[in-house]
Design a protein around this nucleic acid. Structure first.
Length: 337
RNA sequence: GGCGCGGUGGCGAAGUGGUAACGCGGGAGUCUGCAAAACUUCUAUCGCAAGGGUUCGAUUCCCUUCCGCGCCU
């Protein structure tokens, strides 16, 4: 038997979570968030978690590498949403950890006879679940990164060319100009040389997967309009207070969590550098740009079935095709089992 | 009415007698452990308010007009 996995992706503000809950209710599903920012605790408003505050976090014991992370779920309308609020703001969460944890959770849900539904807008996280074997699982080396971050682009380039010229040649123009990518490339070649720390236990858990990928989208102007409305809503819900509180507790600003869209803008306002109306405008256009990047990422995933959320019957259409997929017995691959 | 300053791409903003920095915004992309990140690339081609003049050549100098801002009466 192949394992069924439903995936809902798309840019922000298209109603992915609502759809997830709707489908979860129909098909005995549980949601696994694929969102690189909603993994952080406390950032409820700015990150748009949209889960009632009184919904408790229910931890689950799973054998995972890191004890700083608490794996678990929160309920929204009685549907579990996994992998939200699992890390502290000061923690640098990353794809590798996501892949490991999420795959365990998927197995867990599946083994209980429920349908795992991945919901999120972080394209890389979703990709990492679909093609886990290709993901090189070498953990970040903070010390090395610290040292390398002192080099400029030329320095990084020369270093990489020296230790792994083949890798350099394989990179495209954009990546060659990208310090982070250069550092990562160096990190990988050094670590592969020194030790055999390849962590291949990501398993082939999805090698016999049967995934249906649904993409939610909107015409550009409508999408931007929704984004703007959402930001206004967050302002009314008190993002400023939330941001203030976070800033007071986390003086170090180069945390991944604090690079979330909106945060730098709000920080500028709180520091008295920008007016409130400008802050909102800046946040809006940052969010528009983010949505655009999400869209270009998802555009390249050919397996996605797209639905325009502004169309009338999209819900029914989705439900119908999910039902068809979910109840079908997979015949294509006889190697399963 | 008089005097002064200014009118440059969607916005902000440099600049020069030989034909337009930069920032924002916008478009198109990259992507295998920071991905709501980081990075690449494109984005004024009868052009620099309008008209006239000087000049081999003016966005840049001169004159006039229009518009904006400030001050004065």
């Amino acid at each position: 038997m192949s394992m069924k996995l439903l995936i809902i992706c798309g840019p922000t503000a298209t109603g992915k979570t609502d759809l997830g809950i709707y489908l979860a209710r129909k098909f005995h599903g549980e949601i696994i968030s694929a969102d690189s920012r909603q993994v952080y605790q406390k950032m409820d408003i700015i990150t748009g978690k949209d889960i009632a505050e009184n919904s408790e976090f229910i931890p689950i014991k799973l054998k995972i590498a890191n004890d700083k992370l608490s794996v678990g779920y929160r309920l929204k309308e009685e549907i579990p949403i996994w992998l939200v609020d699992i890390a502290g703001i000061e923690y640098a969460f990353n794809v590798g950890e996501y892949t490991k944890i999420a795959s365990r959770v998927i197995e867990d849900i599946s083994s209980r006879g429920n349908l795992p539904i991945i919901v999120g807008g972080t394209g890389l996280y979703i990709k990492s679940l679909l093609y886990p074997l290709q993901m090189v699982t070498i953990p970040p080396n903070q010390k090395l990164r610290g040292r390398l971050s002192k080099l400029d682009r030329e320095g990084l380039k020369k270093y990489l060319q020296k230790i792994n010229h083949r890798k350099w040649l394989s990179m495209n123009h954009s990546d060659r100009m990208n310090p982070r990518r250069l550092i990562r490339a160096i990190e990988i070649t050094l670590s592969t040389k020194s030790s055999s720390s390849f962590d291949i236990n990501t398993k082939q858990y999805l090698s016999n997967k049967d995934a249906l990928i649904i993409g939610l989208t909107l015409p550009k102007d409508k999408l931007n309009q929704r984004i703007d409305e959402r930001i206004n809503k967050r302002m009314n819900e008190g993002v400023l207070e939330e941001a203030q509180e976070i800033l007071q507790k986390n003086p170090s600003y180069n945390l991944p969590s604090l690079s979330s869209t909106g945060f730098p803008q709000l920080k500028n306002y709180l520091d008295g550098k920008v007016s409130l109306s400008d802050t909102i405008l800046q946040w809006q256009s940052a969010e528009h740009a983010f949505a655009k990047r999400q869209l270009t990422w998802f555009k390249s995933m050919k397996a996605i079935y797209w639905y325009d959320v502004s169309q009338k019957n999209y819900l029914k259409k989705i439900e119908r095709s999910v039902k068809k997929w979910y109840t079908a017995i997979r015949l294509t691959s006889s190697q399963d089992n």
